[in-house]
Design a binder for these strands. Sequence first.
DNA 1: CTGAAAGCGCTTACAG
DNA 2: CTGAAAGCGCTTACAG
Lengths: 349, 349
Amino acid sequence: MAQKVKLSTIADALGLSTATVSLALRDSPLVAEVTRERIKEEARASGYIYNRRAASLRTSKSGIVGVCVHDIMNPFFGEILQSIENELDRHRQTFILCNHYDELSKQRAFVDTMLQLGADGLIMSPSIGTPAADIRLAEDNDLPCVLIARTVEGAGVTSFRGDDSYGMSLAVEHLIARGHRRIAMIGGTELTSTGRDREKGYLNALAGAGIEFRPEWRVTGPRSRHSGFDATPQFLAIPDRPTAACCFSDLVALGFMYGLSRAGLRPGIDIAVTGYDDIDEAAIAMPPLTTVANGQSEVGRRAAAALLARLQGAPAVDRVELITPELKIRQSCDFLWPTGRQPSAMEPA
Amino acid sequence: MAQKVKLSTIADALGLSTATVSLALRDSPLVAEVTRERIKEEARASGYIYNRRAASLRTSKSGIVGVCVHDIMNPFFGEILQSIENELDRHRQTFILCNHYDELSKQRAFVDTMLQLGADGLIMSPSIGTPAADIRLAEDNDLPCVLIARTVEGAGVTSFRGDDSYGMSLAVEHLIARGHRRIAMIGGTELTSTGRDREKGYLNALAGAGIEFRPEWRVTGPRSRHSGFDATPQFLAIPDRPTAACCFSDLVALGFMYGLSRAGLRPGIDIAVTGYDDIDEAAIAMPPLTTVANGQSEVGRRAAAALLARLQGAPAVDRVELITPELKIRQSCDFLWPTGRQPSAMEPA
DNA sequence: CTGAAAGCGCTTACAG
DNA sequence: CTGAAAGCGCTTACAG
């Protein structure tokens, strides 16, 4: 390329002013149809590239929405992200993605960048340890925020997520209804609202059935497939071994089932297992995973819509919007292997 | 917040010029130590936010590197992205991520945005159907590109990827060495260099062992876990059924193994299976997946390093840098189930 | 060591 | 319907 072409290049070539060119390129009816077409043609022919920094500096709108989550690779977020992206696309907002891996420093670097770039809004699944002040800092600097999946107390913004406590109780009640009395819960942490709420649901369901919870049933920590796998030995070592395990997420359940198989146990037969999220894989897994649909695309859609409303000037509202989860019964709590042989789930391993 | 604070706000408060403030904030030795500290303190106290658009407009450097791949949720890319991010972080470049889902229009929108934002560079796994001209457009507008995972002929830039043909031949030769003569290949498409090269490796290995390829062995298409699962019936319907399948990727293999189990067949026993990529899950899967390590973190690291060199002024070079893959033998080609029972892989289903 | 001034490429009142 | 001019918030020579 010879010289960078800018508005004035086009204006000069056509004997017009930059004002007219600027207006025409943005389809302003103020510019005569013919002029507009000549301008667009010239822009195309000269390889003009719109300088968004300059425009944004002038207008203080950037057309950018930042989206930041802790685990981009988790299919749970995949679905949320896709529905956010759809919604944003339709409003011609550019979607900028970030994976903070639950590292506060990474999240802060991203929020800073968004601030410096003059992003119009932010959607995030807040990192473990996010202080409310971090959210308020963004809000105070004209960067409207909407939260997904997790809640930050006192942040003063809306967060969209599934009703984790209710959802987990659905899974545990299902297990209880199938005759299980010793039920472990694998994964999740006190450090997130998700972990706390799902544990609450587990405990509530147990209490509701008059089952006395034993602390050794609670295996905290795992939030990924691999750590679900790694938790298996700890589960197997629980005295008076539970016959069932409700897992923090599908990923944890899937890894845990691998671990069970590795130990010579048959998930769904020797040990009943439930997941959480109902990711795509749950339905094709072996055994197909009984889980809780978490409404991810609704979370994404509504979060994006809420942010878009904020961009139009709607005020921040301090509220959590709960999406009602739904139990998906498949076969991981009572599985008939294709060979035709089906021992009872209660049969000792 | 009352008023937006900018350089001049700080300058006025301290009785200095914006030039001095600007210099001080960027740690210029031109500014006296004491002055610098006073300025930084004032910036902190007043909640100053650096306006990157303004700076970037002035300097025509943005500190942004765009990264665009077709499947962010694939752990294969997860590892690449993480190593790119590490490398970029160390050079204080902001990493902006995009998932183009193999849709050319999404990729184009992203490249456009990067151009308009004045990004410094671009790393991408080009979408199916990317014309070389798309890459050249970016390069011609001062946006240096480096490709990963896939190659675009004639683009004139460097691409980093595994030696797919060699890698696949490793997997197939392993199968052949274990006695298999009827070997299917599941997944991948002619539309990407990856698909073409892996198929080439499969065909070469067959030919090298004097095995005559039969067209019905080639099940094209699947590139995800779910489509690998869905391909199972087609595989099972192949006349004179193959005893083994080499899969296009680990994800395809994992889905295919689910499909096999669903059909009452035992992966690793009734049908030998290989994957490709060696994602984290391969080692914990049941059966543990024999696969080909594809050097993803090296791909990421080297691609980032190459881009960084371009940002320093290194010229574009038209070359493909092949990372040598490595066979990882686990048990999916010869599996001993924990129950102790181990039928031959050749035994009819 | 610090300051005054120009300029990056847009858009937006304001005139005409 | 079109143009002249100011200004968004920085940084960079250039002076002093």
